[in-house]
Design a protein around this nucleic acid. Structure first.
Length: 300
DNA sequence: CAGCCGTGGTA
DNA sequence: TTACCAAGGCT
């Protein structure tokens, strides 16, 4: 039997239990409600990039109440998006979401595009987000490969504890082979596998006792072997430029008026690193320097 | 393509 | 307490 045939046979045994489990256990998240349009789905996907659901929820609600359409967001200064982003982290996402809203307004008549290629061309939309919006908002058939799905497939199908650090061609091929043929089922499958990874097949201590496919899991069958290979990236934070950038931007988010240099100098005592961090924020378009030596969130 | 980009909760 | 982890994208 070919690898593809084996995967297709495997997938047929996985679809029903995973989707049935999803029907019974899916969380009632605001971006999954029937009245949520493509814009709501897109906003949620931006916010959820590397950020837990629990922290996204309140910001998401306020964001959509204030900017119910791409045009509404595009009409405001990008700095307002950065401010409203709050402490979600990775504030460049706010800038990119604003830029995406502008592009949608200018190029797509204010409607979030449904075409995967058009989505991919938007700022801040990569392979995952394009597939997610096309699938969740428009019900299309796409392989949606996020960290949850990759982990589920690594365990259930490949038989290893963790997927590779970077998404591989083999993972993409496997995800396509496992995709149900019928479009609406495929969209359901994408959401279901993601939810399974988020709630049951978690990174640290998976709840295999609650897993609908535990009896078909290759990793379980192999005795749940520990991760084989180099340690998975360690991202220290204390003392990094990222921490300094965060402190600087926090001051600007809270300020209504332009902030004097001295107020920014107060957040970090090491001048070289502080200057580098501020320069980086300006270069990224997150901070706007004014002629009088003060700084503010970007108006344009 | 490896490194960079925030923040906070949890084991 | 430290270290890991959370619906990635960009250069």
């Amino acid at each position: 039997m070919t690898v593809t045939a084996a995967a297709q046979q495997t997938s047929a045994l996985l679809h029903a239990p995973v989707i049935d489990w999803f029907d019974a256990h899916a969380r009632d998240l605001p971006w999954r409600r029937p009245e949520t349009g493509p814009w709501g789905v897109m906003v949620s996907e931006f916010m959820l990039q590397q950020t837990p659901v629990s922290r996204v929820l309140p910001v998401y609600e306020q964001w959509l109440a204030r900017w119910p359409s791409p045009a509404a967001l595009a009409a405001e200064a990008p700095g307002e998006a950065v401010r409203a982003w709050g402490r979600l982290g990775y504030p460049r996402r706010a800038l990119r979401l604003h830029a995406a809203a502008t592009a949608i307004t200018e190029r797509h008549g204010g409607e979030v595009p449904s075409d995967h290629g058009a989505l991919l061309a938007l700022p801040g939309v990569g392979e995952y987000t394009a597939a997610a919006v096309a699938s969740f908002a428009y019900g299309q058939r796409h392989a949606v490969l996020d960290t949850n799905v990759r982990r589920v497939f690594a365990r259930a199908v490949t038989g290893v504890q963790y997927p590779p650090n970077a998404t591989t061609a083999a993972e993409r091929r496997l995800a396509r082979e496992l995709l149900p043929q019928r479009e609406p089922v495929a969209a359901r499958w994408a959401a279901a596998t993601m939810e399974l990874g988020a709630l049951v097949c978690t990174a640290r201590t998976p709840a295999c006792g609650s897993c609908p496919i535990a009896d078909r899991c290759a990793w379980r069958a192999a005795g749940s072997p520990a991760h084989d290979g180099p340690p998975r990236r360690g991202q220290t934070y204390a003392g990094t430029d990222r921490q300094v950038r965060g402190k600087l931007l926090a001051v600007l988010r809270e300020a209504v008026a332009p902030v004097p240099q001295a107020a920014l100098d107060a957040v970090w005592d090491e001048p070289v690193q502080r200057a580098r961090a501020l320069d980086g924020l300006v270069a990224d378009g997150l901070v706007e320097p004014l002629d009088d030596g003060t700084y503010r969130l970007p108006l344009t």
